[in-house]
Nucleic acid binder design. Structure first.
Lengths: 212, 212
DNA sequence: AATTACAGAGAACAGTTGTTAACTGCATGG
DNA sequence: CCATGCAGTTAACAACTGTTCTCTGTAATT
């Protein structure tokens, strides 16, 4: 399946990735709508015009970043809400997974949180579409749980959206906890985990009594 | 209390407000971090340098916009979660209030959703502080409810945050529903209201069984 | 071995940006 | 009534932006 790329195409993908990485770095302190194409090429060390060989505009680059940040996340989502284990276990595992992901890819998480409601329409749309896919997948996973017996499709989807939004909020809070003075960072992180856990627990309770 | 302003100060406040209004308008299609000071003054019809008489920078203007968008919202928050009426009634009333607010001040809502995780640190901080106040107020309101008997302070606050985040998500969804083709707008709005109502209901269920 | 395709460089463009300085006119307070 | 304060203007600056066109070297194709 995987055709070995020629020297030419390999080098092209390399600079393309360099542009994406540089952009992601620059986006830690600003929004996509203020990101200049020259700014990005300067950070990579390449001529401004080279940008056009890879992206039509910075908005286009933004859409590619959405793909990079969320595209490869679908397997993890399935694991997160997989139906194995006790309820409390599942919650702990989900929070743990989110925490680790934020630690591993903080810039990606920041980018998604920032641009989800950001000033660039195509990027918002791309994020919206990916999150809708996530919700669908969560719904499918929930449907396999015996607890969901008797639930309507609509109700499963509304719960799935609730979970997805909750994951994003939690991820964003973990990110905020990382900023600021080093000393109390661990305490802040633990606090976020604790609150998020209890919120998930409460939602889980509501879920169990939904059909009363 | 209210001292009648001189002609001078009145005119100053008028242009200041004009700057805020123009900025809010321009921010419908971009983020604050890309908003130029000249852009704003041009929209108002005033010299660029006049900007400095009112704000140190666009970030400073952003903080003022946060105040305008959220500062006057505290009474409404208290009403929204006030303990009068049946549970189902309260939910309906809350969703209704959110919907009306989005209808009345769409640009304000968009601004807050966009800049909450936006690229301008002081603005993020200002929004965070206001939302923390909201959570405190919601907590106080919840504490007065008989249902909250036996709840710890921490748990009340975690539930309050859950409610506040849920309100913001719902507001943002109402906003998205307003965009796009006119025809199905009402249907989209009704759908948002329906899903949000059920999510609130589920959270409410979890709340009732929290102490089991 | 000769030809083509194409990633990236270089230079130039018209237009924009934030900020400075010195100014003007008028409402205000003595 | 006059002197002061100050909102807003005008002009100018160096720096920056996105985009176009032309050119170069080299990998890929024939």
């Amino acid at each position: 399946m995987s055709h070995t790329l020629g020297i030419r195409q390999a080098q092209k993908q390399k600079t393309r990735q360099a542009l994406l990485d540089a952009a992601l770095g620059l986006l830690e302190e600003q929004s996509l709508s203020s990101l200049g194409l020259r700014e990005v090429t300067r950070a990579v060390g390449v001529a401004p015009t080279a940008f056009y060989r890879h992206f039509r505009s910075t908005a286009d680059l933004g859409v590619a970043l959405v793909e990079e940040a969320l595209g490869s996340l679908h397997p993890m989502i399935r694991t997160t809400v997989s139906t194995t284990g006790d309820h409390e276990e599942r919650i702990t595992r989900a929070i743990e997974l989110i925490s680790r992901h934020v630690d591993g890819y903080p810039a990606h998480v920041r980018f998604i949180a920032r641009e989800r409601h950001g000033g660039v329409q195509p990027v918002r749309e791309a994020i919206r579409a990916q999150l809708a896919r996530f919700a669908q997948e969560v719904k499918d996973e929930l449907a396999q749980d015996p607890v969901s017996e008797g639930w309507s499709e609509d109700d499963l989807l509304m719960l799935a959206h609730l979970y997805v939004d909750q994951m994003l909020i939690t991820a964003s809070l973990f990110l905020e906890a990382q900023e600021g003075p080093e000393e109390e960072r661990e305490e802040r992180t633990r606090n976020v985990a604790q609150v998020a856990t209890r919120q998930m627990r409460l939602i889980g309770l509501g879920r169990h009594h939904w059909l009363d």
